[in-house]
């Protein structure tokens, strides 16, 4: 039996606000899909159906959109999704080593989810943190930079304990005193 998903009054109020920012309702599709994914954890077919009905847009169109963008999860994922960047700068700085380390640690391959549903692991394209390679993103949220096996161990322990990583600011090194001379 498929789960049923619905938006409550508060959700509809948010969606109404989103709609007010655009001249055409179709433009609200991406924001509303994001909102739905935050609420339900995925944009599975049932959620797509809900979004289509709520916005009164063709469901096929929603399907096409969801499957085009990689951040939307058409299938439910693990509680924590580890998106390890392996692209270019991260590749040359050991992104694949970090990916293998996590694969070994969690006992799954990239693209899989641990049997307990705690972790999904993905090898992803450039996340725009090239200067802080290798890095990963946790469930479309915080970036974890300058990965090392130790840092990964800590991260996974934290996540298991329900502690999400906090935002890691990377101020420009230019302002550091020692950078002025080299």
């Amino acid at each position: 039996m498929a789960e049923s998903f619905s938006f409550d009054g508060k959700d509809l109020e948010v969606i109404r606000k989103i709609l007010s920012r655009y001249p055409h309702k179709e433009a609200a599709i991406l924001p509303v899909l994001w909102y739905a994914q935050d609420k339900f954890g995925h944009t599975s077919p049932d959620v797509q159906h809900l979004v289509a009905r709520t916005l009164d847009v063709p469901e096929a169109h929603i399907h096409g959109v969801v499957s085009f963008y990689t951040q939307f999860y058409e299938k439910p994922m693990g509680r924590h999704v580890l998106d390890v960047c392996t692209c270019l700068s991260c590749q040359v700085c050991g992104g694949y080593d970090m990916l293998s380390y996590i694969e070994d640690k969690l006992g799954i391959r990239a693209g899989e989810t641990t049997p307990d549903g705690q972790f999904s692991l993905q090898s992803v394209e450039c996340l725009g943190a090239c200067g802080y390679a290798p890095m990963l993103q946790v469930t479309n949220k915080q970036y974890v930079n300058h990965l090392t096996p130790e840092k990964i161990d800590r991260l996974i322990d934290d996540l298991k304990a329900g502690i999400e990583p906090s935002f890691e600011s990377m101020p420009p090194k230019q302002h550091e005193k020692d950078n002025r001379l080299s």
């Binding site: 055409h24 179709e26 433009a27 609200a28 599709i29 991406l30 924001p31 899909l33 994001w34 847009v57 169109h61 959109v65 085009f68 963008y69 990689t70 951040q71 939307f72 394209e125 450039c126």
Partner: peptide, 22 residues
Amino acid sequence: HMGAGAYICGEESSLMESLEGK
């Protein structure tokens, strides 16, 4: 307006399509 993981949406006309919800 947040994208959702598509490099091509940095191309200006693709960005517009994406903004329009396509």
